[in-house]
Design a protein around this nucleic acid. Structure first.
Length: 323
DNA sequence: ACGCGTCAAGTACTC
DNA sequence: GAGTACTTGACGCGT
């Protein structure tokens, strides 16, 4: 069983390599009042810097054999803001996006986006739904410009509970029909830490034929009494069977005893190892996205720590074999 | 150079 | 209905 590890968006090992520098709307507006072109030029400059830093991060990944990576959703500041409508950032930034895509394909890196919590497909509010689609299209267009196919996914949550999870799950199904096909093929659903459990996400994934990202930390924070990880696993694996992609999980450790939901700096290997043992029964390769404040440092540390555990062999800085 | 309040977006919760 | 917390890296103003 081969397990590959990845990290989220930025490196704690590289200096001045942020891929998520931004221009606040407030400061954009202030500049735009004087000269709209100056304001947009600032957004352009920051975007180019972010993309450049993404390439540096990918090279860093290559040097360490990292095959799993999540892009920051903030690489192009204010991209979907109404005031910047008409700015064709895809066209302008195409050379850089293409270069990133080429690098990703050349080195066979699995990349994702995780659009943030303003993207809510099960909302009853048409306007919120409309804006959610705009945000998803934005992310998908970046992958399209990179010439990355449906193997590059957008990971999202189900959305709000609205005091009635049953009908809100059904509203997800109804709204799903209004999501363009080109987007549908990009989307995977993840269980969250306070509303939708792994079983509920599985219900949607099975019904709509989408792959599921299993967050084992969220599972711990938020699961029903009768929900057992051992029973979730085969179903979760099954959602990936037609995708040609290894199943993917997210792992993190709680910040402290009082604050279980927030992420710790590093990962306690004991938060992952029992899961690895459960996965062994199914003998399937899979990917692990490490979600920790120390990002890549935490990921490399976790891999090193796992070496001391039984049946684990390191195949690199970020890949292990478990027998 | 440093610290601290603030940030476009949604939802949940309190009062 | 209004206000605040959630979560997060980074902005940006004041010192």
């Amino acid at each position: 069983m081969i397990i590959r590890f990845g990290y989220v968006a930025m490196s704690m090992m590289m200096e001045d390599a942020s891929p998520s520098k931004t221009v606040t709307y407030t400061s954009y507006k202030k500049l735009a009042e004087k000269d709209p072109e100056v304001a947009l030029n600032k957004v352009r400059r920051v975007s180019r810097e972010n993309l450049h830093n993404c390439l540096r991060l990918l090279r860093h990944n290559k040097a360490h054999g990292v095959k799993v990576f999540r892009f920051s959703s903030k690489i192009i500041p204010l991209a979907t803001h109404p005031d910047l409508k008409g700015w064709d950032y895809i066209k302008e930034l195409y050379p850089q996006l293409k270069e990133l895509g080429d690098f990703i394909k050349e080195n066979e890196i699995r990349v994702t986006f995780h659009p943030d919590h303003f993207t809510v497909l099960n909302t009853p509010d048409e306007e919120v739904f409309r804006k959610s689609l705009i945000d998803l299209v934005h992310h998908a267009r970046i992958f399209n410009a990179m010439k990355l196919d449906y193997h590059s996914k957008l990971v999202i949550h189900v959305g709000g509970g609205y005091k009635d999870k049953i009908s809100s799950l059904e509203r997800f199904v109804e709204n799903w029909a209004k999501v363009p096909k080109g987007l549908q093929h990009r989307i995977t659903l993840e269980n969250d830490d306070k509303t939708y459990t792994a079983s509920e996400v599985l219900y949607l994934c099975n019904k709509l034929q989408l792959p599921m990202v299993l967050d084992i930390h969220h599972f711990r924070c938020n699961h029903d009494e009768d929900e057992k990880m051992a029973e979730i696993i085969p179903e979760f694996i099954n959602t990936w069977k037609n995708t040609e992609l290894p199943p993917k999980i997210h792992v993190s450790s709680p910040k402290n005893e009082k604050d279980l939901k927030s992420h710790h700096e590093f990962i306690d290997p004991d938060d992952l190892y029992p899961f690895l043992k459960l996965m062994r029964k199914h003998n399937v390769n899979f990917d692990v996205m490490v979600e920790a404040k120390q990002k890549d440092k935490a990921m490399f540390q976790l891999v090193k720590d796992l070496e001391r555990y039984p049946n684990i062999k390191l195949l690199g800085d970020s890949v292990i074999a478990f027998s």
